[in-house]
């Protein structure tokens, strides 16, 4: 329960009731974030990396998100994995609309985030033109590590009750990344 004490509380408006509501939401968010039921809307190449992330090597189950549900009614997170073509767009929106609240959307890969290098008549330039997105994961395809980063970012956002779209940061730009990379390199190079 140590985590609970760190919960953020926010006051919206004045008065006690406002305070209680946010607190409750935060508690709910904390409870929700480790049992995400996911709907993998896998269409293209990124689906292969999605399988890898779910497979034993990377094991998405460690983050409480291993249960795929192929019914939109039963799922919390919609993973949009792969290119969404104009023809697919109505299907995607329908699936999104069928999901029950609360629902989150992750755009997996460059194609889902912005259309990628398919800048043409057939492809939707980013699913955020159709449905709201919570987390963008860049990469073509993103490495499983990036996917896990994205999942953790989403869990973090759920805990914070934050619905603004965010992109998984390029860790190379973060502070201290050089040293971390050097360490990683040395671990990998060990015989």
């Amino acid at each position: 329960m140590a985590d609970l004490s760190k919960l953020e509380t926010r006051t919206i408006g004045g008065g006690e009731s406002g305070f209680v509501t946010t607190k409750f939401e935060a508690l709910l968010g904390w409870a929700r974030k480790y049992s995400l039921f996911q709907y993998p809307f896998a269409t293209a190449c990124c689906g292969m990396e999605f399988f890898s992330t779910a497979s034993p090597r990377y094991d998405i189950a460690r983050f409480g998100a291993e249960a795929p549900r192929f019914s939109p009614r039963q799922s919390d997170v919609l993973w949009v994995v792969g290119t969404i073509s104009q023809r697919q767009a109505p299907v995607l929106r329908r699936v999104y609309e069928q999901m029950t609240e609360p629902k989150w959307v992750i755009a997996f890969g460059t194609c889902a985030s912005c259309g990628g290098f398919y800048d043409n008549y057939a492809t939707v330039p980013g699913i955020d033109k159709i449905i709201p997105v919570d987390v963008f994961i860049p990469g073509c395809p993103p490495r499983p590590e990036a996917v896990l980063d994205g999942l953790m970012l989403l869990q973090d956002k759920i805990g914070r009750c934050d619905r603004t779209p965010e992109t998984v940061k390029n860790t190379l730009l973060a502070e201290g990344a050089d040293e971390a990379l050097e360490k990683l390199y040395q671990i990998r190079m060990k015989p």
Partner: peptide
């Protein structure tokens, strides 16, 4: 047709070498 991404149209737009990344994503 739900994953039609206009490979053939995109190939006509770049140079011969620029087709390689698109071929990766044919049979991925």
């Amino acid at each position: 047709g739900y994953l039609h991404r206009a490979f053939e149209k995109m190939s006509e737009r770049g140079t011969w070498s620029q087709v390689f990344p698109y071929t990766d994503r044919l049979n991925y």
